[in-house]
């Protein structure tokens, strides 16, 4: 009985939030630490001017997930830790259907946003227990759960594993 009541309450609150939340753009708390990734374009919520900046604190706040997988860039099994891409997109209120991921060496590729809702795609910050350095293809790396989905073991998806990721733009 009580759980049912709780459930109903939850649904009502959820509905209220769903109705109210999109209506107003939020100014998120400003970043404290050094920027790791900068998001630009159409963002509903921003935390630095009209940009979204991901710093280490935000990473902690969004929560890190672990992903063990082989890659097309290294030998053997690798253990990644990082935030879900969709969590970042949601946090900044990004509704675009495609984003452009840009790396330190100016490598850039367009990725359909549906990838991040279909799969648990991470922006990894740690590899095998250590923070990623530029030398290790850091500081951030888009990684796909390639071992879990056969369809992801494809050149097209390998190209979306953007390493040395520093910028994201909405399309």
């Amino acid at each position: 009985m009580s759980s049912w009541r709780k459930y109903t309450f939850g649904v009502l609150v959820g509905l209220a939030i769903a109705v109210v939340a999109p209506a107003q753009a939020k100014e998120l708390p400003a970043p404290i630490g050094k920027a790791i990734i900068t998001l630009s374009g159409v963002l509903e919520n921003t935390n630095q001017g009209n940009l979204g900046v991901v710093d280490w604190d935000l990473v902690q706040q969004l929560g890190m997930h672990e992903l063990n997988t082989t890659t097309a860039f290294d030998k053997g099994m690798q253990k990644f830790r990082g935030v879900l891409v969709r969590d970042v997109l949601k946090y900044f209120g990004i509704k675009a259907s495609t984003i452009r991921a840009i790396a330190l060496d100016d490598y850039a590729i367009d990725i359909p946003v549906e990838d991040f809702y279909k799969y648990d795609v991470l922006i990894a910050f740690e590899l095998n227990g250590k923070r990623l350095r530029v030398r290790d293809k850091g500081p951030a790396w888009i990684v796909y759960p390639r071992d879990a989905h056969k369809g992801l073991q494809d050149k097209m998806f390998d190209d979306r594993w953007v390493w040395q990721l520093i910028r994201v733009e909405t399309k």
Partner: peptide
């Protein structure tokens, strides 16, 4: 950057 790319070219399958 040179380092990481050389490593990928040597170790990666891509």
């Amino acid at each position: 950057l040179v380092w990481s790319r050389t490593q990928v070219l040597n170790d990666g399958s891509i």
